[in-house]
């Protein structure tokens, strides 16, 4: 398959040489792909804005030895042009893209569920119906869940006794009962834990009704949980701004 076609989302771009760019894509069928967009940085490039981050594209690639080469590309949805007009939404979106790259991590290993999750997340973010930070936290929790790191929120992460429990231990994998409680556990408010459950399940009605204080606490827990489970931290999370 020297020439293949796929559908994907541009996660990040890095400049290469004079006018080229390496684009990292999360594709529907092939998974994570790193490909060269030749001449993308020239103002008269035929690719133009199609290979910018956040763009959902229909792409034809030529398989190379280490990097593939983009030969044709068509835009399906340009989420970037919407997100970039709103700074909090943009920073949340960048954190989603970076997380997708770190969670999938292995190149050319199909990750359909991660692709669909990211696509849905970006679509929701672009629609602007919910607080961007909630959309980001929901994405982070679900992305970890798909990767096999779902936090235990309604039972003890250690012994499995059904909850509700009061303490959360990042390194234990979620909520813990009073008997299993390891050192370094924290006591989040029940409302913040309820918000995490709602985000993981996709219960937007409860999530949208949550208080600002609980959202901040929930974001802190999710960020700590994510950074613990990913080998390399998500750098852009530090710069996510609240709406």
């Amino acid at each position: 398959m020297s020439l293949y076609r796929d559908e994907g989302i541009v996660l990040r771009t890095q400049d290469l040489g004079e006018a080229d760019r390496i684009v990292t894509l999360l594709t529907r069928r092939t998974g994570l792909v790193r490909a060269v967009g030749k001449g993308v940085r020239r103002t008269r490039s035929r690719f133009g804005a199609r290979l910018e981050p956040f763009t959902h594209i229909d792409v034809q690639l030529h398989a190379g030895k280490s990097l593939d080469v983009v030969t044709q590309v068509d835009t399906l949805h340009a989420y970037g042009s919407v997100l970039v007009t709103d700074y909090p939404r943009y920073t949340a979106g960048v954190a989603m893209l970076e997380t997708a790259e770190k969670v999938v991590s292995v190149e050319k290993d199909p990750a359909l569920r991660q692709f669909l999750l990211l696509w849905g997340g970006l679509r929701t973010l672009a629609e602007g119906a919910h607080d961007p930070r909630l959309v980001l936290d929901a994405y982070l929790l679900r992305s970890l869940a798909v990767a096999g790191y779902a936090p235990a929120l309604e039972e003890c992460a250690h012994c499995g006794v059904p909850g509700p429990h009061r303490e959360f231990a990042v390194h234990a994998g979620g909520m813990v009962c009073s008997l299993c409680r390891p050192a370094g556990s924290v006591k989040p408010s029940p409302a913040a834990v309820a918000l995490m459950v709602a985000l993981l399940r996709g219960d937007w009605e409860s999530a949208d009704a949550s208080a600002e204080r609980d959202r901040t606490e929930c974001s802190g827990l999710v960020a700590a949980y994510l950074q613990w489970h990913l080998e390399n931290g998500v750098r852009s999370l530090r710069l996510v701004e609240r709406a």
Partner: peptide, 16 residues
């Protein structure tokens, strides 16, 4: 649109 380019090759965002 860049001066000297072709309209049909312009991407959707740029043309928009």
């Amino acid at each position: 649109l860049p001066v000297g380019g072709d309209l049909e090759y312009a991407d959707e965002v740029t043309l928009g």
